[in-house]
Amino acid sequence: MNPLKRGIFVFTGLLVLTAIEYFLGTNQVPQILLWVIAIVKGLLVLQFFMHFNRLFDNDEGGHE
């Protein structure tokens, strides 16, 4: 996928999750739900913004 487009998708996802989080939080739901959302958001950032996989790129391998 075009990385620019992917960035927009991920960002939208993060925004939506934040909105859900805010809604849940202001209604005092069990903490665990908020943790799940926070971890999902974190994983999105790790994977798509921070490119965790690049860490395991071959030393001689190509560059995105």
Binding site: E21, Y22, G25, L34, I37, G42, V45, L46, F49
Partner: peptide, 16 residues
């Protein structure tokens, strides 16, 4: 950003 993603609910949203 990642740190804030965890801190935001921990500070503002979690708990009674």
């Amino acid at each position: 950003d990642l740190v804030w993603i965890i801190y935001y609910p921990a500070l503002y949203l979690m708990g009674l």
